[in-house]
Simulated assay, not measured.
Amino acid sequence: MSIRPSALVSMTAAWAALTVLTGCSEAAETAAPKLPERTCFGVFSRSDLGPLVGKGEEVKESGPADMQLTALRRTSTCSVDVDGRSRFLASATRQPLEQSFFWNAQLIKPPADPLPLGDKGIVYDTGARVLLVCKGSGEPFQVELAISGSIDQVEKGGSRPLFTQLMKKFVEAGRQQTKCGI
């Protein structure tokens, strides 16, 4: 039995096409990691953090389920890592009013912009911070909410608007979960 040259060319082309398609399907699976539906204290959705996670295979979220803070549990931090690399970080820190949080905005390059959320806020290319002064029925305290992330996958000039939107959600949830002003 002999194989005609044209059939051999067709079989070789089919094999090459199959190899290319198989490679594409494998690349598509590893292109964007599967985020949980809700992340970081239940605040952020999959679509919220999608622009920050980039490409990879394995997503790992670490941190507590909530950011309820007390005089004993003063901080709560959530991290989203992709293939072992940190892609997003959210934290809430509580302290007495007589202490102050120190933000050296002069070291941030390009300079931070004011963020009109909470009692004081700033947004910069790789994150945002907001201060909440919490006065309610109990002892007054303050909470610093901070988010940061990898902007490798974010369109140039799009990170500050993205962090502003993320911080709006974080402030709303932070007030409730830390019982700020309650």
Results as ranks from 00 to 15, higher is better:
G54P: 04
A31G: 00
V43F: 09
G42A: 10
P33H: 13
P36K: 11
S47T: 14
L49N: 07
G56R: 03
S25D: 11
A32G: 12
S45T: 15
G56L: 10
E57K: 08
T22C: 11
E57L: 02
L49T: 06
K34L: 05
K55Y: 02
A17D: 07
D48R: 09
F44V: 09
T30D: 10
W15V: 12
P33C: 08
P36C: 01
A16I: 13
S45H: 07
A31M: 13
V53M: 03
E37F: 01
L49K: 02
K34N: 03
A31Q: 09
A17E: 05
V43T: 15
G54L: 09
G56H: 02
A17K: 09
T30V: 11
G54H: 05
S47W: 07
L21T: 07
G50L: 07
W15A: 14
R38C: 00
R46D: 15
T22D: 14
E57T: 12
L21Q: 06
L52K: 07
L49R: 09
F41I: 10
L52C: 04
P33M: 04
F44W: 14
A32R: 01
G42L: 14
L49Q: 04
D48L: 13
C40L: 08
C24H: 05
R46H: 13
K55T: 08
T30M: 00
T19R: 06
S47Q: 14
V43L: 08
K55S: 14
A16S: 12
L18C: 11
S25Y: 06
L21R: 00
L52H: 08
S25T: 15
E57H: 03
R46N: 15
A28N: 04
L18K: 04
G54I: 03
E29V: 08
A28F: 12
G50T: 11
P51Q: 02
